[in-house]
Structures are given as C-alpha cells and as structure tokens.
C-alpha cells in the first residue's frame, strides 16, 4: 500500500496555507508568495541556518525559529514580518557590512548582489557600528575565476555546492569567530588545487561578488544558478 502523504494546515502572516509534511516554513512561505529573506539558504543545497535572517516568530515557541530548517506543523501560526524581526534583520545586515570591505561602487556584482538587494529592501541606510576595514587578500590564482575575501559573508554556499553537487570539496572554512575565512584545499592558492574541476558552480551560488569570473568589470557579473534546480530534479530530489 502507498504511504500516506500527510497534509498540514497552518497560517503564515495571517494567511491560511497548506503544506506537505516535512516541508519547511521557508518553502511553504515561498509557495504562497511570501519571501522570507535569507543569505545562506539556497534551494538544492543542505540548509545550515547560519545567517539568521530567516528567523520567524511561531506562536507558542519561546524563541525565534529559522524558517529554512523548521518543518511545518499542524496549526502553526507563523509571523515572518513583525517589527521586531525586521529590526533584527536590519541589524544583522549592519553587522555584515561592518565586518568586511563591502564597497558596492567598485564591485563586479553591483546591481546584482543579494546582500545589496536585501539591504535596499529592508531599508538599511546606514551602519551604526564602526567598520572594521580588515586587511584581506584576493586570490586570483585560478585561470578563470577569483575570490575576493573582502566581499565574503561566510554563507558557505560555495563550500556546500562544491561538496554536495560537484563532489569536489575544494572549499572549506578555516579559523574561528571573526577570523573565519573560506579556503581552497588546505589553504592553498585556488589555482593550484588538483581537485577543483573549474565547474564554476561556486561562482554562481555566491550571493555577493566574493567569487566572480575574471574579465568582468564593475556591475557586469550576473550570477546564473539555473543549474541548481535542474540538477536537483535530475537527481531525483524535489524542487
């Protein structure tokens, strides 16, 4: 006999919606036209719940829950857009802008950047924290691509796409706390990596201009990630 698919009904921002058991709040919200902001989550990659931008309020829960990993439950009442949540999101973006050197005017993805777009959408007009201006390197040793750590927000999408989709695991994270940094292999120049297949998946899942194609001038780099839903469906996953 076929296993039953259980359907859950819940409300998101006052709207009654239905969902399959096992779906996350983020997925169900998107199906219903509610866009919960995120920078680390990308459909097709495993969720890590690291950026904390998708935190939502669930009635009865004593803390905020990340929508990207929280599964729906019957009768849940979810609020995705309260003033408190928007304030938190603005402040998290402020923290990100102060952390490294994000200068949109000279960035290859100016106009196509997820961080920039989100800041505009949430109305982040200024940063109250002092900028750190860290001294970070650019690794342009790869033939076709480069990574500029000044623009990296440590979402680890590159790490996950390389490991989970491409199967090469070129990228990883070293150090901890504020000193964390994305590294190729065991902190080797990207161009010397034997395992990198130069597939470019990391370039296109990167939400900012941290990983980009060489030869692109300011605002010319657009990320194309159509491959991700395609690959996920072809491999039998759901999209």
């Amino acid at each position: 006999m076929r296993a039953p698919v259980r359907i859950k009904t819940l409300t998101i921002d006052g709207k009654e919606v239905s969902a399959k058991e096992g779906e996350t709040i983020w997925q169900v919200a998107r199906e219903n036209g509610i866009d919960i902001p995120t920078l680390c989550y990308l459909e097709g990659l495993s969720p890590v719940g690291a950026c904390r931008l998708c935190l939502v309020e669930v009635k009865g829960a004593n803390r905020l829950l990340p929508a990207c990993v929280t599964q729906v439950e019957e009768g849940m009442e979810v609020t995705t857009n309260s003033e408190r949540l928007v304030n938190y999101r603005r402040m998290i973006l402020e923290l990100l802008f102060s952390e490294r050197n994000h200068t949109c005017s000279v960035c290859v993805v100016n106009g196509h950047c997820e961080l920039q777009r989100l800041a505009q959408r949430l109305g982040v007009t200024h940063v109250r924290f002092p900028y750190r201006y860290p001294d970070l390197p650019v690794d342009a040793s790869h033939e076709r691509f480069a990574i500029d750590h000044n623009r990296c927000i440590l979402c680890t999408r590159c790490v996950r796409v390389c490991d989970e989709i491409e199967g090469a695991h070129v990228w990883d994270v070293m150090g901890r706390g504020i000193k964390s940094q994305i590294i190729a292999d065991l902190n080797q120049p990207w161009g010397t990596s034997d395992v990198c297949t130069s597939c470019g998946k990391c370039v296109h899942v990167c939400p900012t201009g941290a990983i980009f194609e060489k030869g692109k001038a300011v605002a010319e780099m657009e990320k194309r990630r159509q491959f991700l839903p395609y690959l996920t469906i072809m491999r039998g996953g759901k999209q």
Partner: peptide, 12 residues
C-alpha cells in the same frame, strides 16, 4: 575568541 564563526550575530 571562542565563537565558531558560523552565524552572523555571534561572529560579528
């Protein structure tokens, strides 16, 4: 100095 650096609120 002991933050792992995974999530933004704790790291920054």
């Amino acid at each position: 100095s002991e933050s792992c650096g995974k999530c933004i609120p704790c790291r920054v």
